[in-house]
């Protein structure tokens, strides 16, 4: 694995050189992450103007816990998309793993065992996706639509339409545990961002993932174990989804099969807003990190200003489309 990467700087230099015939300030300014940051600032200003109740850090942090589970999964999804694949099934995986947790708990398993079952199921679901994509070599986009329906359906078979609750007090309410004024899930998100950012930015694997996304064939010729890495990414996606599912279970104190319905849209939206290139090879954890906060501010700002949900749906849909168009345009510019 390491033999091909004796000089870890090499691939980065190649990418940068191809992209930098323009002045340095332009390279820095016209980056998707900068655009995301700019949007973040604008959104915060607009939200403050829309409602006098918005500008309250405690409130924003509290509200962020409703989206932060998706944001955590979106971090892994960013890496999956950089590698040239996509996973649309994490929201369904969250539901199924949470329902497995609930069912195991109801069957008498102690909480740690039930959590183990849930995490294991995440591994299995991720590997199942990975199997279809890397072994059978089917396109991930359609495979994960299939597994999205399948996993959600299995959650429904398992839990029916009943909600499972009655978890012990120490398990319930992760979003109420604070460090200072920061809820624990937010800390988890920040820690995960730093870890995954470092993984993608400075490890050999990180650079190999960029290479796979840029040109899979070139990556294969360079001796990168493409299939193994992709399998690992899908498994990581499954595991993260089950952790997120457990966090939802803790936050709500109950689980149901329809938990996190439509979450795939939110996750893809976060990744796209963060400037990750939908065709792979480009993107960063920093962008996704900023985009998650952008989403939190937009959603919370609109809700606290009592803006009707129909306008919210419209704006979210528009944002997704505009953000991919913008990212595409920026990359097209920097390429030639």
């Amino acid at each position: 694995m390491t033999s091909i990467d004796k000089n870890p700087v090499a691939p980065r230099v190649i990418v940068r050189e191809a992209a930098a015939p323009r002045p340095r300030w332009q390279v820095w300014l016209i980056r998707p992450e900068v655009v995301t940051l700019l949007l973040l600032v604008i959104a915060a200003i607009v939200a403050t103007r829309l409602s006098p109740f918005f500008a309250d850090l405690g409130f924003i942090l509290e509200s962020s816990t409703y989206y932060i589970e998706f944001a955590i999964v979106a971090l892994v999804l960013t890496i999956v998309i950089i590698s040239g694949e996509i996973d649309l099934s994490p929201a369904a995986q969250m539901a199924l793993s949470a329902c497995l947790f609930g069912t195991a708990f109801k069957a008498g398993a102690p909480i740690p065992v039930a959590m183990g079952v849930s995490l294991l199921s995440g591994l299995v679901m991720g590997a199942f996706n990975g199997f279809f994509v890397t072994v059978l070599r089917l396109p991930s986009i359609i495979v994960t639509i299939g597994t999205l329906i399948l996993y959600r359906g299995l959650a429904q078979v398992l839990a029916g339409d009943k909600s499972i609750s009655g978890f012990p007090g120490w398990f319930v309410g992760i979003d109420y545990r604070m460090v200072g004024i920061v809820p624990v899930p937010v800390l988890v998100f920040i820690a995960a961002s730093i870890l995954l950012g470092l993984f993608l930015g400075i490890t050999i694997y990180g650079r190999q993932i960029y290479q796979i996304g840029t040109s899979e064939i070139a990556a294969i010729h360079a001796g990168i174990r493409v299939r193994r890495i992709k399998m690992g990414l899908f498994i990581a996606s499954g595991l993260t989804s089950s952790i997120a599912g457990l966090m939802v279970a803790s936050r709500l104190g109950s689980v149901r099969y329809d938990l996190a319905t439509g979450g795939e849209l939110t996750m893809v939206l976060i990744v796209m807003l963060g400037g990750t290139y939908i065709f792979g090879g480009r993107g960063s954890i920093l962008g996704t990190f900023l985009a998650a906060w952008l989403l939190v501010i937009i959603a919370t700002g609109m809700t606290v200003a009592n803006i009707a949900i129909n306008a919210q749906l419209t704006i979210m849909g528009l944002l997704l489309i505009v953000s991919i168009i913008a990212t595409n345009a920026i990359y097209a510019r920097s390429q030639r």
């Binding site: 409703y66 938990l259 009592n306």
Partner: peptide, 30 residues
């Protein structure tokens, strides 16, 4: 009418400082 969909709305109303939140709950426990 998904079980968790009303939660952000309740939080926002607390923040707005309303006196009374009347709600037709989507879930008996969430």
């Amino acid at each position: 009418a998904e079980a968790t969909s009303q939660i952000p709305f309740v939080t926002a109303q607390i923040q707005r400082g309303v006196n009374v939140v009347a709600i037709s709950p989507n879930s008996p426990d969430a």
